[in-house]
Amino acid sequence: MSFFETYGDRLITAIQVHLCYVLTSVTIGFVVALILGILLSRIPQYAKIIMPILSIFQTIPGIVFIGVLFLYLGMIPATVIIALAVYAIFPVLKNTYTGLLDVKPEYIEAAKGCGMSPLQTLFEVELPLASPSIITGLRMSTIYTVSWAVLAAMIGLGGLGEFIYIGIASNNNELILAGAIPSAIMAIILSLLIDVLGRFIIPKGLRGAK
């Protein structure tokens, strides 16, 4: 019996479930991180203290976070999505914050000079200038989330991790690869898509500059 005959259907479902977890949690994480990053960049004097505290939480291993969350919330997709979204926040938050702070003050002054309101300055000057950094953060976050989403299988919620966990439990490298290869491909495709997205978002003059 060939591998795909036995596992084919389960693999396709697993890829869909995995992708669903990744897209939902990255989207949530991205929105939260963007808002937080903007807020923190308005108060750099406090952000200097808040950012390191937030980054300490990043050192909590995923299995602890998802494991403890499971004990309280149970076996529901929200457990996975909350945990993954929290981890997706950090890279975007850090890059949004530093990207916004790196915007040269003279541009902001110039915007003020043109009579722009602070909100207009943010959306029309600061965010576009910080966009390369923000996109890089989003890309990192996505790659990590694809990899972390393996942990969904730890709490019985499927995804590609199921193949990896079953493979390790039974010493079966075919199964491990059946989980790992689609997951790596997913990470690569998503990161390429984000690069394409970046082409549309990043202002022309900034393209190519890292």
Partner: peptide, 14 residues
């Protein structure tokens, strides 16, 4: 970097 850590370890163990 895109290979999940657990899978990477699982393959090397073999």
């Amino acid at each position: 970097q895109t290979i999940p850590a657990l899978a990477l370890l699982g393959l090397i163990i073999i």
